[in-house]
Every structure is written in C-alpha cells, then in structure tokens.
C-alpha cells in the first residue's frame, strides 16, 4: 500500500520500499494461537493450573488412603454413609477455586497491567480476543481436569478395593467423573466473563468467591422453606449436581442443574462480550 493518500501531496517523495515483513491477517485461529501463548507464558498461570491438577487428582486419593487405613475403626454409620465416588472426587472443591481465580485473572490481569490496550489494538474488533481466551482456557481446563478426575477416581477405588469401592460402571460413576471436569471447565468460562465485566482482579475474584461460596452460605441460614426454594437456582448448587453421585436434597437433576449453570454462563459471556465491544478500554 502506498503511504500517500489520494489528494494529499507528501512533502517528501516516498522512495520505493520493499516490505520487510509479510502482511498478516487477524483471524479467530490466529487469535487463539496468540491467546495460547499468552496463557502459558505467565508463571501465575502455570502455578494455578498445577495447583488445580494436584488438588483434583490428589485430594481424593489422600482421603481414600486415610479412610482405608482406619477402616476398621470407623463406626457402622460412617461405613454406611461413605460414598466412594464422591469422596474420590472431593478435590474439585479446591480445584474450582484455582480455576475460578485463574479465569478471572486471565482477563482482569490485562486490565491491571494495561495489556488489554495492546490486545485490542491488535484485534480491534475485540470479540475474537474474548472468545480466544474462553476457547483456550476451556480446552486446557477440560483436558487437565478430565485426566485429573479419572486419576482421582481410579486411584481412590484401587486403594479402597479391600472394603467399599466403586467402578466406572457403578451407577452415576462415569457421569460424576466426566461431570466434574465439565463443571470446572464451565466455571472457568463463567469466571472469564466475570473478570471481563468487572475489569479488576480484586473485584473479579471477590465477585467469584461471593457467587460460589458466600451466597450459598446465606441461603443455608434462611428459613428452610425459602432456602429450599432458592437453593436449586444458585449457580453453585446448579453446577455441582453433575459432580456428585449422591445428590443433595431439594436440587435439580444433575443434567438439568448443569444446563441451568451453562445458561448462567452463556448470559454472563454474552453480557461481557456486548460490553467489551462497546466500552472504552
């Protein structure tokens, strides 16, 4: 392209210049590649993902090992209520925290450092940046979490094999193992949307913690009739049903609750995208 726009004489005649670099083009695939690089080139990302994997894969196994060693000392009631599937997947409670915080930071970190300006200058239509972040983070989270939850489940059942254990063919076992990875993945997407809406790390993490840990606590102290009516609709209750083989009382079905959780996430992503394209950076 010539630097001289029609009708505007250039004060200095432009010498013929060979373009030093090939011309590029912004595509969603290119932006995904860029977001992949951005994700893995920060130490905080790598530590958070490692923490999520270790807690998801390790906590259930640790609990299984402890329960197995003291099985003979457990009361009959404890033995009767021990749920080998849900115990093996208990690490999700910590993994969700690591993934949620990381989801917020992936976008809020760009606002706190000013990186978002560079990102938006490179991709001025903006939406591909948000979708690229969601795509890369969801794929990475799902792969890591599905492997971790299978490891947690299989290792735990192997440890418990002398006493009470489940297998993948046990009722709800496979659904809970896969569901755990699905829940954490969608939670990560929800947290990217929260980070994009709030645009600050402190605010985004607060919003995420409030939504998942504070609101359920408040619902728990409400009168039973009200609490039971509200509870199934809370994002945490709706989302976690799919991770449990033995469901809590007064909840939606696992897939029904998960569909609601996905619905919340879609609404949050749509709001984040709508604002991201329109707001000043």
């Amino acid at each position: 392209m010539s630097a001289t726009a029609a009708g505007t004489p250039a004060p200095v005649p432009a010498p013929a210049r060979v373009r030093a670099s090939p011309k590029g083009r912004v595509t969603q695939a290119h932006v995904l590649r860029s977001e992949w690089t951005k994700l893995w080139t920060l130490r905080s990302t790598r530590w958070s993902l490692l923490a999520a994997v270790i807690s998801m894969a390790g906590l259930g196994v640790l609990i299984a090992a402890i329960q197995n060693s003291r099985w003979d000392h457990l009361s009959l009631h404890d033995r009767a209520t021990f749920t080998p599937i849900d115990n093996s997947l208990g690490g999700v409670n910590i993994a969700q925290l690591a993934i949620g915080v990381l989801g917020v930071l992936i976008i809020s970190g760009e606002y706190t450092t000013g990186m978002i300006s560079s990102s938006v200058m490179a991709v001025p239509r903006r939406l591909p940046v948000l979708l690229g972040k969601i795509g890369v983070f969801a794929a990475v989270t799902f792969v890591l979490m599905i492997v971790s939850s299978f490891v947690a489940f299989l290792a735990s059942q192997a440890i418990l094999s002398d006493h009470i254990h489940a297998s993948l063919s046990s009722p709800h076992a496979l659904r809970a193992v896969v569901g755990t990875a699905l829940y954490v993945t969608v939670l990560g997407i929800l947290c990217i949307a929260i980070g994009s809406l709030v645009r600050s790390s402190a605010g985004g993490i607060s919003a995420f913690v409030a939504l998942l840990f504070v609101v359920p606590g408040i619902a728990a102290i409400l009168p039973n009739s009200i609490g039971n009516a509200i509870n199934p609709y809370l994002p945490s209750s709706a989302g976690t049903g799919i991770t449990q083989a033995v469901p809590d009382a007064h909840m939606f079905s696992p897939w029904g609750g998960f569909a609601l959780f996905c619905g919340y996430t879609i609404v949050a992503v749509a709001a984040a995208g709508w604002l991201f394209v329109r707001r000043d950076v």
Binding site: G24, H30, T37, A122
Partner: peptide, 12 residues
C-alpha cells in the same frame, strides 16, 4: 513472548 503474542494475532 509479548511480541510473539502480538505477532501471532496476525499470523506473522
């Protein structure tokens, strides 16, 4: 890596 991430958005 900062420059690489920018270049990759354009496939450079």
């Amino acid at each position: 890596n900062h420059l690489l991430a920018l270049a990759q958005t354009h496939g450079l």
